[in-house]
Design a protein around this nucleic acid. Sequence first.
DNA 1: GTGGTCTAGACCACT
DNA 2: GTGGTCTAGACCACG
Lengths: 122, 122, 122, 122
Amino acid sequence: MLVIDKLSRIPIYEQIEEGIKREIATGILKPGDQLPSIRELSVILSTNPNTVQKAIMSLDRAGIIVSTQGRGSFVAKDVRERIKDSLGVKLDEIKAIASSLKDAGVDSKEIIDAIKSVYKSK
Amino acid sequence: MLVIDKLSRIPIYEQIEEGIKREIATGILKPGDQLPSIRELSVILSTNPNTVQKAIMSLDRAGIIVSTQGRGSFVAKDVRERIKDSLGVKLDEIKAIASSLKDAGVDSKEIIDAIKSVYKSK
Amino acid sequence: MLVIDKLSRIPIYEQIEEGIKREIATGILKPGDQLPSIRELSVILSTNPNTVQKAIMSLDRAGIIVSTQGRGSFVAKDVRERIKDSLGVKLDEIKAIASSLKDAGVDSKEIIDAIKSVYKSK
Amino acid sequence: MLVIDKLSRIPIYEQIEEGIKREIATGILKPGDQLPSIRELSVILSTNPNTVQKAIMSLDRAGIIVSTQGRGSFVAKDVRERIKDSLGVKLDEIKAIASSLKDAGVDSKEIIDAIKSVYKSK
DNA sequence: GTGGTCTAGACCACT
DNA sequence: GTGGTCTAGACCACG
């Protein structure tokens, strides 16, 4: 399910992070599950191992996974909490964009409709 | 009103673009108004003239201002249309973030409340 | 009939030169006719006198008009020849553009049709 | 094949843009092909890397190539469409010149012959 | 190694 | 004085 868009302007390592978080959020990966090795992932995603490692390191630092030399990477036990933590940032991003749209004279209804459309779809 | 954060990860030239768009959106700058010269702006913002010019060039290509050698830069006449055009992109950004929040199990109400809070504040 | 487009990327002084050449070509100005003074022209076109003077100087150097201190500017007698001279340049420009269109795989018919459309209109 | 004339009044970065477009149009570069790096190009053309980057950036914005940090620049997939788009402008240029030649009393045949000569050569 | 951003300073064309 | 182009050289993010 983990798909990378190499043409996107979003860094590949961020796409990998997001992809793994998404798999955890949707329950495909559960706390305690082992992730594929960096080498395996790099083959699956056909990217540079360095890039995968950067994503793994970042998730480890965020406490979402636990990665240890020689043993591999596992989804953390208290991962739900951790993922919630990273949501505050995203809400702030939305607020910032909404703020500039507000200045530009866009009605709040338009934005809310856009969000509702996302939630309705499927 | 135009403030630049040199430490932000958003490129300075983009901040300048956003700032000018904002001044147009809020009516501080009106169609036909002349902008300060690139050199003046570079002094005001204490950045390099090249950086300012990059922003000016970009706004010119977007049709938001008209910049001509030896004459200066002016806010375009049909600027409202142009700025509206650039909003579609931002709505898409919000949708993308909302989509990942949805996957993470966040209720749409939380996002909508965040937006309402932005619009309420003053 | 002489109209200046201040928003065009073509230099104003070139637009003035072209405009005067056009008035001569279409017979509005005939050999020996006196042109309005630089000051008058600058008022009519609402441009800087320096800009008008640059155009006048250029036409004088090309032999299309004769401009003398204190007496004003007059359309040259052998002006037809001179204007013909300046056409070679334009044909070369068309050739250059046509050449790149050719490389891009555009059929010659398309270009020829475009030219015919110009000549048909009125 | 990519030659730059530093003495031309056409900006170097535009010459580079045109050169790359031409290589795509003539099939030397095909969709998906990787371009030489900015640094390589700057050496080949003996210009400053910034100048090359300006051209690359412009082609990227036009959707003709896709340029990404750390990955390099690639010819876009739907590049034929994009290049066709940029041809409309050139036809307009030809029309504008033809219009002034028409006013100057030049017969349409002369222009058409010039174009035919371009298409015949080679 | 790749592209992206920024600074500094120069020269040119145009008004 | 205005914007436009170019060079030189630096630093950063990404792979």
